[in-house]
Design a protein around this nucleic acid. Structure first.
Length: 898
RNA sequence: GGGCGCGUAGCUCAGCGGGAGAGCACCUCCCUGACACGGAGGGGGUCACAGGUUCAAUCCCUGUCGCGCCCACCA
């Protein structure tokens, strides 16, 4: 016996365990079935399930469950990402809270041990939570990006790319995060709009009393490192100064005024100060003009004067070395204040203007980035990007929705060298060793590096391994093949690479998707997946981005606790439109829980009426219009749902399942079935029961990918299969239905008749308790026959006492409605208000006449008839005929009143 | 500055060349033998605005306005 209501909390845990323990999630490398592979975007080990996860993993689980039911050998590869910076920050914060010493005091090895320890204790949170969602991941295959095997893949890739010249060291400006004290890649920089100031500073011209050139800057503190002023060669007033020298205030250095087209005459003052070591553009100018590039900020963005110490000069009223030396060790923002005050004091500050501009910030540390001149490891992304671009151009990889291809192309075609080294401890340590003379030995192991060094030096020299680790995305880019055992040639690698579809949000197209494509193609010779499905972001109900500071974060686990995982999943499915964000709140989940309940209650109805699966039942043997009709409608729903899933329209899939279950199966089929189940016709009742059981089975299978728990529970309790077998039950396919069209016509008529009668009664305020006969005027014999066949159902659903042909004149005080060739007459003399009935009919007539007029006008247009396709013209002729007939019958009905 | 997306019923959205749709909310009626997390009925929209293409435009094109996002050299 089914419980009165569905209990998600109890059911979900039990069923999930049942699936997992029975190996229902496992792929089978020995199977002859076609594989279907989805690689999970590995969540951070530090993570806990948030709404974005709920969205992406629900979509993936729907796809994987659907394909699994279709008989594909489904692999949904689980795992987590070591998430270098994020994890290191979490553990550092934890250590600080526990009163431990700083990691630098603790030492590298001890710190890394602590991170591993932390991972062992807390790293399983996200995978436990994924189980709550119902995600059918192949857990025994779970991988971690710092596993031995995946680390071997990282070394293999690094060494190979190095030997191919695609990884190299370079000294240039990088985005430096002064808070985390590491280099970061361009992608980890986020611009934020900052309300700052623009300071105009006069740089005196050397040897020319009272002459100066004014530069404008948002960062006065970096002027300590200025080594030139640039002016556009064609600048109308300033070009004459080119070739002269300016005296750098405060420092006293003589710096050249150079001609460079980078200086835009329209911006600032037209003259721009050049600080090569602290600005990307200035660096380029510096290179073009062979300028010195002194760094005046250190790795914590504090002033350091070491590199300008020897140029500090006293210039009366303009430069004072002791002031500059006094800045040593000051934070850049404190130094800014001090510099501005000093400039003002010595009288070279021309003016200050408020200035709003975009300032790059580190996405993790949250502080402004400092361009810093350092040596880092780079990957030549340009070379790797070419085949990836080509793969998308030729359609080997397709983005869904397609518009994301533009975004992808725009970035890939202008890709910059990828800085892959990070000054962190948690991550894959770079497999490079340095000899005493600074020579680099890149090798798979230290032993190999030593061997190379021995060959070079002729004796054993002490080697020091590079201190840096690799960008986390370097290893996650290998995910589609490293998780399958590469660089070993495993059967899994041969079978499950390339994957089928990658599901993710647009925010990591560059970070991850593009890198997987580049590295996958380079090392596997084949694209890592054929489809990239990009979904939106989860926002709150009002469309606001969820954030802790706004306090509008919704916890998916709380929603699961309150409404059940199925309700949450179905809500997500229903709301996931292509290229659209998902606006989600508790009320939406609550309203979708009703659907779970509805399904449960429909099943209870079946159970109470002795409906249970009949394995021998052949749908093609159905003889009744009702059973044929519902089987035919199920066919259509299966086709719709399957087609929607093939197009990645999860919302349309959900809607198709919802409509069929609620509006067809519950609203009409069950209602029509009720009288038949208790009528004397045992054969008919048996056929209805068998069909109902069959269709309920279709519904459960159709909805299973979206609502795995409630469907599995019903499947099991009804005995459609062994416990926990729905997950691998075959996806429904259309069955042969004899004369489906005839059944459709018949049921369609009954539904419309009931609808007309209900509508008239409601509008006329006929009390539901009042039962009146339904009289059919001018009805064709076939119509009357139908009415007879469906008498019981019509009586129940339209609250009628009987349905018969109208013999003779219409009873006085009847309400009327037009249905095809017939007029439906409802004799309700006692309750009806004739004035109201007249008004109601007049309104109906107005509508029909309006329609007729509109279509007639269209058909009256000779151009339309001549140029529109024949079938469109024909369709309109039919519409006109129907509308005119309805007008005639409504006019007649109106005339009969009194 | 460049690019992308979106403006359709009170809300969230679907439809994207030939009859304006769904869910929720709202109003009325109903505890009818699965379900009040239910049933029945109903109101509600110059499909942002202005031009253009077409026999026909919510749908295609151009422009305007509004909202959101991404990218870009911090003068």
């Amino acid at each position: 016996m089914l419980d009165k209501s569905f209990n998600p909390a109890e059911t979900e845990a039990r069923l999930y365990e049942g699936w997992e323990n029975s190996g229902a999630f496992a792929c089978d490398p020995t199977s002859s079935a076609t594989p279907f592979t989805i690689m999970i975007p590995p969540p951070n080990v530090t993570g806990s399930l948030h709404m974005g996860h709920a969205l992406t993993f629900t979509v993936q689980d729907v796809l994987i469950r659907w394909r699994r039911m279709q008989g594909r050998d489904a692999l949904w590869q689980p795992g987590t990402d070591h998430a270098g910076i994020a994890t290191q920050m979490v553990v550092e914060r934890l250590l600080a809270e526990q009163g431990n010493v700083d990691r630098r005091v603790m030492g590298r090895e001890a710190f890394i041990d602590r991170v591993w320890q932390w991972k062992a204790e807390s790293g399983g949170t996200i995978t436990r939570q994924l189980r709550r969602l119902g995600a059918s991941l192949d857990w025994p295959r779970e991988r971690f990006t710092m596993d031995e095997g995946l680390s071997a893949a990282v070394r293999e890739v690094f060494v190979t790319l190095y030997r191919q010249g695609l990884i190299y060291r370079d000294r240039r400006l990088v985005n430096w995060d002064p808070k985390l004290q590491t280099a970061i890649s361009d992608l980890e920089v986020e611009n934020q709009e900052i309300k700052g100031s623009l300071w105009y500073i006069r740089y005196p011209i050397a040897g020319a009393r009272d002459q100066f050139i004014t530069v404008a800057t948002t960062r006065p503190e970096t002027m300590l490192g200025d080594t030139a002023v640039a002016v556009h060669p064609a600048h109308p007033t300033l070009a004459g100064l080119i070739g002269k020298q300016a005296v750098l205030p405060l420092v006293g250095r003589r710096i050249p005024i150079v001609a460079d087209e980078y200086a835009d005459p329209a911006k600032g003052t037209g003259a721009v100060k050049i600080t090569p070591a602290h600005d990307f553009n200035d660096f380029a100018v510096g290179q073009r003009h062979g300028l010195p590039m002194p760094s005046v900020l250190d790795r914590q963005a504090r002033v350091t004067v070491a590199e300008i110490a020897d140029v500090l000069t006293v210039v009366d009223g303009v430069a004072d070395p002791s002031f500059v030396r006094g800045l040593e060790g000051q934070d850049r923002f404190a130094a800014r204040k001090a510099v501005v005050a000093e400039l003002e004091r010595i009288g070279v500050l021309e003016k200050v203007e408020p200035h709003t501009h975009q300032v790059p910030h580190g996405d993790r540390g949250g502080v402004p980035i400092e361009p810093l001149l350092t040596t880092q490891w780079y990957c030549n992304a340009e070379v790797l990007a070419k085949p990836a671009i080509e793969a998308v151009e030729t359609g080997k990889i397709q983005f869904v929705p397609k518009q994301w291809e533009n975004t992808f192309f725009a970035w890939m075609r202008d890709i910059q060298p990828w800085c892959i080294s990070r000054q962190l401890w948690w991550g894959h340590r770079i497999p490079a060793w340095y000899g005493p003379d600074g020579a680099v030995f890149v090798a798979f192991t230290e032993e190999e590096a030593k061997a190379e060094a021995r060959a070079k030096y002729g004796n054993d020299e002490a080697l020091a391994q590079d201190d840096d680790v690799l960008d986390t995305w370097f290893s996650s880019g290998l995910w589609p093949f490293s998780t399958l055992g590469w660089p070993q040639k495993t059967p899994e690698l041969a079978r499950y690479y390339p994957g089928d579809v990658l599901v993710t949000g647009f925010d990591i197209i560059f970070f991850w998707v593009a890198r997987m494509m580049m590295q996958g193609i380079h090392f596997m010779g084949e694209v890592p997946f054929h489809t990239v499905y990009i979904h939106g972001l989860v926002r709150d109900e009002r469309g606001q981005k969820m954030s802790k500071s706004k306090g509008n974060v919704i916890d998916p686990l709380e929603l699961i606790d309150t409404y059940g995982a199925d309700a949450l999943r179905f809500t997500i499915c229903a709301l996931t439109g292509p290229g659209r964000d998902v606006k989600l709140g508790a009320s939406r989940v609550e309203s979708h829980r009703s659907f779970v309940t509805k399904l449960w209650n429909a099943a209870r109805f079946c159970e109470m009426n002795g409906i249970k699966p009949e394995p021998g039942f052949d749908p093609a043997s159905a003889t009744l219009p009702l059973t044929r009709w519902v089987l035919d409608a199920a066919n259509a729903a299966i086709a719709e749902a399957t087609d929607a899933l093939e197009r990645y329209r999860i919302d349309e899939y959900a809607a198709a399942g919802y409509r069929f279950t609620w509006n067809t199966f519950c609203d009409w089929f069950v209602e029509f079935a009720k009288p038949m189940l208790t009528s004397g016709d045992a054969a008919a009742a048996a056929e209805v029961r068998a069909t109902a059981a069959y269709v309920l089975g279709v519904v459960l299978r159709l909805l299973h990918p979206a609502m795995p728990f409630v469907t599995e529970e019903l499947w099991d309790q009804f005995g459609y299969g062994a416990p926990c077998s729905l997950i691998r039950a075959p996806w429904p396919v259309a069955v042969l239905v004899a004369d489906g069209a005839a059944a459709r016509t018949e049921l369609d008529w009954v539904v419309r008749l009931i609808g007309e009668v209900r509508g008239v009664r409601a509008e006329m305020n006929v009390p539901p308790s009042a039962r009146a006969p339904i009289l059919l005027r001018d009805a064709a014999p076939e119509t009357l026959a139908r009415a007879g066949r469906w008498m019981e159902a019509i009586r129940r659903l339209a609250r009628a006492s009987e349905v018969t042909a109208l013999a003779g004149e219409m009873p006085r005080g009847s309400a009327q409605a037009v249905l095809d060739e017939a007029t439906v007459v409802l004799p309700l003399a006692e309750v009806i208000d004739l004035g109201a009935e007249r008004a109601r009919l007049a309104k109906e007539l107005d509508k029909a006449a309006g329609e007729a007029r509109k279509v007639a006008q269209k058909l009256g247009n000779a151009e339309f008839v001549r140029r529109a396709p024949e079938e469109v013209v024909e369709e309109n002729r039919e519409r006109l005929a129907t509308a005119e007939a309805e007008v005639a019958r409504l006019e007649a009905a109106l005339a009969r009143i009194e």
